[in-house]
């Protein structure tokens, strides 16, 4: 059982990324596609934090723990994942604004119908 847990988090991150790409490619609604993109982005959080984990360690926040008394997890990947989450939200907002513009101009949000409409 422990052999699987050594690689399970990475495999889960890969699975979430691939299922997100599948959803993105086969989506029939641009809003649904933006949701699939945020699923893809969730895969990066899982991979980043899985890389930084240390067995039996705690968070590198010393407000309620004596520094050096307990092993700590890697803070650098946490800083990366943290800004990734917030940027992901604002990029999702920008993409949704684009979807609103597409709906205004072409009256539809189905990507297949869009490719037929010229201009």
């Amino acid at each position: 059982m422990t052999a699987v847990t050594h690689v399970l988090p990475y495999l889960v991150a890969v699975w979430i990324f691939l299922i997100g790409c599948y959803g993105l490619a086969t989506s029939r609604n641009l809003i649904h596609a933006v949701g699939c993109l945020s699923v893809c982005q969730a895969a990066t959080y899982v991979l980043l934090l899985a890389v930084g984990y240390r067995d039996g360690a705690t968070a590198p926040v010393f407000s309620d723990v004596e520094p050096g008394s307990r092993p700590v997890v890697d803070p650098v990947v946490q800083a990366l994942a943290l800004t990734d989450v917030v940027v992901g939200a604002t990029v999702t907002a920008l993409l949704l604004a684009l979807v609103v513009q597409v709906a205004k101009r072409h009256g539809t949000v189905d990507p297949d119908e869009l490719s037929e409409l010229r201009g």
């Binding site: 399970l8 930084g52 240390r54």
Partner: peptide, 13 residues
């Protein structure tokens, strides 16, 4: 997963 080698993390702490 859960290995003990985190060179950047230790220096950042």
């Amino acid at each position: 997963f859960g290995g003990d080698r985190h060179p950047y993390g230790d220096r950042a702490v």
